[in-house]
Amino acid sequence: MQFLLTFRSLTYAQRAARVLERAGITGTVSRVPKAAATKGCAYCVIVAARHRDMAVGILTSAGLSPERTILRNPDGTLEVER
């Protein structure tokens, strides 16, 4: 399972991925699936589900809180957390 951490712009998503990388967490910048993009095009950082809490904590401390966190299940379905 994976979590998608969404950001308002590509620049923020890239910054977030680099912050996570420095903390030893692999995050991949990607487009937010259309079904979950409420305002049109958006970007996210995809992290392994086990890293969700640590990643959100690190990003919040760095002033880069994700707009939403979305769980992507193994079957591809999405569950918006917040």
């Binding site: 712009s9 305002k39 049109g40």
Partner: peptide, 17 residues
């Protein structure tokens, strides 16, 4: 176009977009 908040007519309020 900026590749962000595409569904709104206004330009994004945030930089650099």
């Amino acid at each position: 176009g900026t590749g962000s908040v595409s569904q709104q007519a206004e330009m994004p309020a945030f930089l650099p977009d």
